[in-house]
Computed example of a mutant assay.
Amino acid sequence: MDKSSSTERYIPMTTISSGKGIEIAPDIYSFTIQFVNVCFIGTAEKGWVLVDAGTPKSARKIFDEAEKRFGHNAKPEAIILTHAHFDHIGAIFELMEEWDVPIYGHSLELPYLTGQKNYPIPDRSVDKGLIAKISPLFPIEAIDLGHRVHELPSNGTVPHIEGWRWIYTPGHTEGHVSLFREIDRALIVGDAFVTVNQESLYEVITQKLEIHGPPKYLTPDWATSWQSVKTLENLHPLLAVTGHGQPVSGEWLKNNLAYLSKEFDKIAIPKQGNMFNNL
């Protein structure tokens, strides 16, 4: 198993929400690490999974939060990855070594998790925001999880959490997935859309609530990203946990997701870009 800068390079950036958790439902808990959210799904009694693995050097924070929520020596049944960007797999090796549990991702994301393929260098030209400008400094190297990583079941179920299914939502990455539960229309979005302007350092720090498409500097396929947002809007979710920004629900989610789905070309797609597939 090979590490890379995607799990080793600490990014000195944070938000006012870092270190805070929000219970979205009795068995859904969002926890912010620096500028990204991980999600705990399940209960101590019935078992739980971790969705995404935070930023590099954040494992201790995840371990501590798991113990607070589920008890001493709490251990998930599995780790589910929405995708393999550095801020979603940063602590994966430490978590894997401590917990010894299977890790799941989409088949098209596995090359980034088995050392075969790096992501493209982020495109600093897509936006005037400071984070966009410094984004080429973000690590994009693949990691190799070896036999620990598995393909998500082809029938759409999510291992170890009953009632959930994974939804293929590519565009931000080739194998990006979101998770959905029909009974309460709960949605774990990953980065298919976000609720903060992820290109602006000020808005990331302050966590100003706004609907946005996926982070521009790391999204190579905008036509597919738009279709993924339409797919999620058609689920009519009642609550959503995004990879970046605040969890949202009710009328705010309904109205703003419909707006994003309709006006994606105006809201989300950058007007310029050096290498990305703009419409």
Rank of each mutant, 00 (worst) to 15 (best):
L81V: 12
A59S: 15
K57P: 04
A53L: 12
S58M: 09
P76K: 06
A84P: 14
H72N: 07
E67W: 00
T82L: 10
D64P: 00
A66E: 02
T55L: 05
A78W: 02
R60V: 05
N73E: 09
A53S: 15
G54D: 12
P76M: 09
H83Q: 15
A59G: 12
K57R: 12
R69M: 06
E77F: 05
H83N: 14
R60Y: 01
F63W: 08
F70C: 07
A53D: 06
A78K: 02
E77T: 03
I80L: 15
I62L: 15
E65W: 00
A84M: 09
H83R: 11
G54F: 08
R60N: 10
V51D: 10
D64C: 00
L50S: 09
K75C: 14
F70Q: 09
N73S: 07
K61W: 01
E65Y: 00
D64E: 04
R69Y: 02
I62D: 09
V49G: 02
T55R: 03
G54K: 13
D64N: 03
V49Y: 02
L81H: 07
K75N: 14
L81G: 14
E77V: 05
H85S: 13
L81P: 11
H72F: 06
E65P: 00
R69N: 06
A84K: 07
E65K: 08
K75A: 13
R69P: 03
L81E: 12
V51W: 10
P56V: 12
D64L: 01
A74L: 04
E67H: 01
P76R: 04
V49N: 02
A84S: 15
S58A: 13
A59W: 06
K68W: 01
P76H: 06
A53K: 11
I80E: 08
L81K: 08
A74Q: 05
A59N: 08
D64V: 00
A78P: 00
P76D: 09
V51N: 10
S58V: 06
A74D: 03
A66Y: 03
A74T: 04
A59C: 11
I62C: 11
G54A: 15
K61Q: 10
A53I: 07
E77I: 01
T82Y: 01
N73T: 01
K57T: 12
G54P: 05
A53T: 11
R60G: 10
A66K: 01
P76L: 13
A78R: 01
H85L: 13
I79M: 09
K68M: 08
G71H: 06
G54S: 13
I79R: 05
T55F: 00
I62R: 13
V51I: 15
T82V: 08
K57E: 04
D64Y: 00
A66G: 14
I79W: 03
G71S: 12
L81Y: 03
K68P: 05
T82S: 15
A66M: 06
K68T: 06
I80Q: 07
I80Y: 06
K57L: 05
F63L: 10
R69I: 11
